[in-house]
Design a protein around this nucleic acid. Structure first.
Length: 221
DNA sequence: GACCAGGCACATC
DNA sequence: GATGTGCATGGT
């Protein structure tokens, strides 16, 4: 079986097991954007608390959040961890939104894919995963989001080598599955679900829906 | 108490 | 260009 077939089978197995994940868990594009920064290396439960704080403070919109003093912003997002650095990162992103597009999501939504990605990556604190999460889940662009779980799961099943970088993994997956935004959306969400439930750094691999696939020998216990 | 979580920038070699 | 480190809360 080719690696492309294997990848398509992984998608089907996960979809069969977990069903549609209905991502991103947010009410609108702006909430996706904020959540994408807050969830960097952080459990989503903690992010929910931070977003809840922002909503309660009635600052969950681009201009208001941008005008909030850095210290106040940091305090509100505290539950999400790394709150000082994330406050700066959010501020950088908001500055771009407000100064370049008047804080208008609709204005940003008009950008072509390449320009949107380029401008997101130019913001300090926005790396490839955060940029692509915003591209796919806030602006419905055909771009696959790679994360730590993706690298771990695909590495563990020997579909990528341990030195593969972000774009190599992204290329492999995008060239293996159909170019459909809904499939990209679901597949990444399904990978996160598998990662959370079965693919820890110290794996036990019991009950994993991919147990039928070949994997590295040292993690079979 | 140890480990982990939906990264990223920066220092150092 | 690779490798290491700081950033931090909250759940298991």
């Amino acid at each position: 079986m080719s690696s492309s077939e294997t990848i398509r089978n992984i998608y089907l197995s996960l979809y069969k097991t977990y069903g549609g994940r209905n991502w991103w868990p947010a009410i609108d594009a702006f909430e996706v954007i904020v959540g994408a920064v807050l969830t960097q290396n952080t459990n989503w439960k903690n992010v929910e608390k931070a977003i809840s704080n922002l909503k309660n403070a009635k600052v969950m919109e681009p201009l208001k959040l941008y005008e909030l003093p850095l210290e106040s912003l940091a305090e509100l997002i505290r539950p999400a961890g790394y709150y000082n650095i994330k406050a700066k990162r959010l501020k950088n992103l908001l500055e771009w939104m407000v100064k370049e597009y008047g804080g208008s999501i609709e204005g940003i939504a008009k950008l072509p894919d390449w320009q949107l990605r380029q401008e997101l990556l130019a913001v300090k604190g926005i790396g490839p995963e955060t940029a692509d999460s915003i591209m796919l889940y806030a602006f419905n662009r055909l771009i696959f989001v790679v994360d730590a779980y993706t690298a771990r799961i695909f590495g563990r099943h020997m579909l990528i080598d341990e030195y593969a970088d972000y774009h190599q993994i992204q290329e492999l997956i995008q060239s293996s599955i159909e170019p459909d935004i809904n499939v990209y959306n679901e597949f990444h969400a399904l990978i996160v679900e598998l990662g959370k439930s079965h693919c820890k750094p110290r794996p036990k691999c019991s009950g994993c829906p991919l147990e039928h696939l070949p994997r590295q020998l040292d993690i079979t216990s």
